[in-house]
Design a protein around this nucleic acid. Structure first.
Lengths: 207, 207, 207, 207
DNA sequence: GATGAATGAGGGTTCATTCAT
DNA sequence: GATGAATGAACCCTCATTCAT
């Protein structure tokens, strides 16, 4: 009994994981149920058994990547290190997450192509929203009181700026690499970009 | 005869325009030849007549949006106004272009999903690259000499930063609006974002 | 224990009743096990538990509607009233039964589509045949002796004629209503039809 | 060119003919696109090319059998022979049509299962309605004036009665044969039935 | 006796493309 | 140069049913 349930959950999890990859790589329309089934070492039938439709599978995949990001963000502590250090750590964390989780970028881009249709309808939407913006606000407050950050910075805008600098660079790495004629993911270029980006964020909140 | 040729070119142009919209809205796999044909008031057969395949049509659409951006950027003058003013104008120009041309964002995102496969193979690639990064370099030089900009800023990185702050915000407007619970395209929020972004860019190049 | 058995039988009965409706409404191929299960407030699995297969369920449903008709017909008395009155009463009874039991018509039509495959194989076939034809024969005899009916009327043919006039009208009510441009089930039209039909039957057996 | 067009029409016609058979034999849900394609010596793809969907194919099949009946009925002359003779001829014609065109009965039954959904939506509905009821009215008039038919017979009801007696017998031949224990289509029984039916109709309109 | 989990086979339909003038 | 007719290959999905306790 327990074994079967565990198997069932394992199969479901394998399918979901494969779906995340498939949708991230090929978008919604380009995703193939058969590839998902094969990658999950299961059958196309099971995909429909657990997720009812291609759309249902996509919704689950999308929720899954948002939940993973939120879980990862929930481990971040912004209240311990010195404010500017904490801010830099957070930037590095966010960018590293994007770098290590291309499936997040792929799924979010796909969802934007669909005008966030699935996300808006998700009953889990509230749970998926990360509390990290609030923590950034507290950090800005602390930095101000420590005399190392200026007043008047909107935490949400700060978050967007940090996200922008990492997301855009990685999401568009292929066209940018082609157009600029250099491999943006080569360690040297990546380092240089993070350095410039950190500097930008620091200067943005500096006095 | 001339009329016929002009008609032929006009048909081709209508198909191309319709294809740009279609690919931008639905991605490559989601795009439908029939919708392109209908929107162009032509037939599916004509699409193949002029562009040989769906891939050929996408390539042409992609080249078309890059060419349009390059043409627009070629009208920009960065050597006339006071350096910091010129920089801000350029930011506003770029962001306004993204705002007014969602099809550019849509096609570029789609091309990145495909790892820039089409762009890399395009024989027109060099022609599509905008000379604007060079102009930004000259502007930085001028700003330095005028004593209002610091040394050591990579023009390409500056360009990426400007692009990031506009592109990310617009490309991800739907998911961000859903997650943050506010309409990012509402005039107030848009203004506030551009303001913060300009400030960020200015502080980045400032002494 | 008794309760459990009664519950089991109740579940079986609910499934059977739901199946009768489902097959009558959608035919054999169009019937859905899931709808039967839901309508019976049971599970698809239980349907198979009690009836083994879709075909088994259909057979049971078919036998059930024939048994119901036979039970209803068994209450009819043709030997009491004045012969022509009794005949008219019988017509009214048959037609009223068809009217009130559309599921009978639906299942019988479906079974005919399948060339009575299930009925012919039913071991209960003999039990399902109504003794009403025999009673009609006796009635004809009585009418003859009373000098109000002619000789030479085949009771089976009389039965078929009565059935025809009701069954055809109700079974084909939808196409006929569409073609004739009037609602055949509207009280006025229904009354008029029964009246004409009764007259037809009376004139058929009259001297 | 002409050849191709003829081929195209021939293919379409073969598919339609095969569809009529398939739907008549198996109902809507039971009908298989693949069987239609095979019987028409064509491909399943062509079925969709010409008829867009299973529903479109059914609609076309249904309209086709109604059109065939109307065409056949349009050849009938009710104004030449002696009134009662003409009426009997008409009965024989109708019943013979049902007998020779089981696909008509099959499709009409299927359409009634679907509550005439397709027929009601058919833009050709008016064209499909046979003018034969009007002709029956004229015949009744003529019979009256000739002093061989009574007044007060509704031509539509007469038509329904004639149709009932043939349609019911043939449509339900399989269940009736099983229940009555005799083959209703055996020449002897068929003859006897037509005889009784003609008598019934004659007596119905007689003085 | 009763039931949740799983599934092979095939269903209708669409897609991008080619044929044949 | 331009176009109507035709199509092979998949695609998403559903159905009736069985497995395994």
């Amino acid at each position: 009994m327990t074994t079967r349930v565990r198997d069932a959950q394992a199969t479901r999890a394998r399918i979901l994981k494969a779906a995340v990859r498939e949708f991230a790589r090929h978008g919604f329309s380009g995703a193939r149920g058969e590839r998902v089934a094969r990658a999950a070492r299961s059958s196309e039938r099971m995909v429909y058994y657990y997720f009812a439709s291609k759309e249902g599978l996509f919704r689950a995949a999308l929720e899954s990547v948002y939940a993973s990001l939120r879980d990862a963000e929930s481990t971040v502590r912004l209240d311990e290190a010195e404010p500017l250090e904490a801010l830099e750590s957070f930037c590095r964390f966010v960018w590293d997450y994007y770098l290590k989780h291309p499936e997040f970028i792929g799924l979010v881009n796909t969802e934007n192509l669909h005008q966030a249709r699935h996300l808006r309808r998700s009953p889990q939407l509230d749970e998926l929203v990360s509390p990290v913006v609030g923590q950034l606000g507290a950090l800005l407050e602390r930095g101000q009181q420590a005399g190392v950050m200026r007043a008047g910075v909107d935490p949400a805008q700060l978050y967007l700026a940090i996200a922008s600098l990492g997301y855009f660079y990685l999401s568009n790495q292929h066209t940018l690499s082609a157009v600029l004629g250099r491999d943006l993911l080569a360690p040297g270029h990546l380092q240089a970009h993070w350095l410039a980006a950190v500097q930008m964020i620091r200067r943005f909140v500096a006095l």
